[in-house]
Design a protein around this nucleic acid. Structure first.
Lengths: 211, 211, 211, 211
DNA sequence: GATGAATGAGTGTTCATTCAT
DNA sequence: AATGAATGAACACTCATTCAT
């Protein structure tokens, strides 16, 4: 069954707190949410644990985030902003980077974004029917990647760029997953291999179209 | 009634049905489980829904699978057997296939395996601490892939083969995911791109070492 | 939804209610628990019936007592406090009472303690492996009794006092049981007989050692 | 709730098996039942475990004992016969035993009856509303004890004898309980003390009335 | 606005009992 | 007669969400 166990409040947006007290609280709430979701996954994360880890009470949590879904959306949105910035930096340097450097920047992108990235992956893995925002997030990321690719290699057709972006995004996630489970099970050379594959691939797609 | 109510039955394996009636039921139960888990993910899949979808009663489900974990393990094991067979076929032809053909056989591997594959992916995505069997499954797949690679390119060092296998397995999963969400969101060229990346990568890793 | 569903909350102590509303509820919950357990025994008592009898919802019960075991422990602990007080009174008068009076005070001890005593006996009869608190309760009672005996008869060796205490405690429980089933089956003279046996026994153990 | 979970078969008596095969099976079933009930208590003992421990199938168990209650009754009845015999022996020697010897014979009675005695105690401790047979068993034991006492001390009034019997029966159970938990928690001198109390008591009740 | 108590449907699991083969 | 599969109500426990203070 899905998570809307009972009497869900369908009001869609997180309350904007007016005072800095409230802003602090919201920040610690979101941090806690990210941590708990990263540890347990979206479904297993409980609102009670999130509140407790933030040193708040369940009532406070619900004051700012009227339900779990909204909380997830807020997390995604915040992360989206971070990601946008980070993509912006890469995009700015797209023309001065070698193809290999660009490939590496992309594949290490999620890894270098510390903080809540694990939570976001957990969120994106959760059943995607749940939130349109999740799909939007994915599409935004895809677009940014495509744009970077096209800036690097202007002759690329947009549809091709999108298709490549899908692959690159997958590689990014794989790299993140690999570094998360590092030392546990995976052979240590895997990240090197992934980086190599990604370089090879992007080189073949971008170099030829480069001016 | 008694306090054992709360200790789940830790008996570790699924009951082998003794009668044809039971065998049929077990089959339909596993099919239903695969369907429900594929739809909702492991955690959201409820035992009640699985039983209902199999046209059984909850008690019947628990007769054969003493808990949800065992049910998941059984699914994984059965799928593991299918996969083993299929890997066997590829391995047999490893020396006669071109590198590109081999690369394509591998990326398309999961896609061509119909049946419960989606459920199995959902299962593997579920927190992996949960079951040793899950890790074992992954390792087995990794080994098979590494062996195929080494058969194709005998000079490959085993550790390198394992590292490549990790990447190839990820590509296989990505391909499966791509075909599952086909038409929903992803640009249609993505599968072509993935196939291309995989070819490029394996060609670079295998060709040079080929006798 | 998540697999944690089946692992019971192992948090070991009852929540202390913070508001007067909660305190009232906890009191009525414990009262109801005592009643239901007294009627049906620990295992047959259901959390649902306890909640219902307290006019609460199952969720409220679990808010304060995270599992059945903790509820039982809380009952035992509360009763333990009552018992401690009562033992204190007897101990204070141990030196001024005649042996017969002391003997009678002890056998009638549990009988005179009304309230949840029946539930507590049911609890103590439940498999004792279940809770260390249960064993601790028993040992505490034994110690108190032994101390009373030694105060009354200072030359008694501690080990002997402990051994006598075991017997006296059994007599106390027997008396309680006898009065509970009074009129149902037992011959009415039994309580008189028990009192007599207990007097005889304690007189023989204590008198000779009296200063 | 009580144990009649669903569609109980109210037919009251255990089927008498005609062939020795059947008798053997019934015997092993009862033995298994006694063992499991002794270990877990009546409520926690499951019909499935009983069948399994007897090397039978649940269906076989239900063939001979149409429900759990009947099984318990059969156990009690069989034990009643054993007890009757044993009481008979004591009764036969009542006039030649010293009072102390008689007291010891009685208090050690249950202890010396090995086998299922623990199961029977578990059964008798189970809520007594459940079976009239259980009350009957208790009354029979009480009667036998009273008779022994009266044979030993013929001037005893029957009502007094019954009242004493109640006490003696409790002592018997206490002794059994003490030996069962021996070494676990109880001070080792307790059994000696119990024996002494019982002697003292019976000596005072019987000696004076002896011819 | 913060707190924490209340709600109750839902979840995994058990087990006495029945019944078809 | 024996086997083992089927039934389903009951149980302990969880958690998103609401609400009174």
């Amino acid at each position: 069954m899905d998570s809307n166990r009972s009497r869900p409040n369908r009001q869609r947006s997180a309350l904007e707190p007016q005072r800095s007290r409230g802003k602090l609280r919201v920040a610690s709430l979101m941090e806690a949410a990210a941590a708990v979701i990263a540890e347990r996954g979206f479904e297993s994360a409980t609102m009670a644990e999130i509140a407790a880890r933030a040193g708040s009470q369940i009532g406070s949590l619900y004051r700012f985030f009227p339900n779990k879904e909204v909380l997830a959306d807020a997390l995604i949105q915040r992360y989206g902003e971070l990601i946008n910035e980070a993509f912006g930096k890469i995009e700015g340097r797209a023309t001065v980077l070698s193809v290999y450097e660009l490939a590496d920047s992309l594949v290490d992108f999620l890894v270098e974004l510390h903080g809540e990235s694990r939570a976001i992956i957990a969120l994106m893995e959760a059943r995607s029917e749940w939130s349109i925002k999740r799909a939007a997030f994915r599409n935004a990321a895809l677009h940014r990647i495509a744009q970077i690719l096209m800036r690097c290699s202007p002759l690329l057709r947009p549809e091709t760029a999108e298709a490549i972006a899908v692959i690159v995004l997958h590689n990014m996630k794989t790299m993140k997953a690999l570094t998360l489970e590092q030392g546990i099970a995976t052979s240590p050379g895997a990240t090197t291999e992934l980086r190599e594959m990604n370089r090879l691939y992007l080189a073949s797609k971008l170099s030829e179209k480069r001016p």
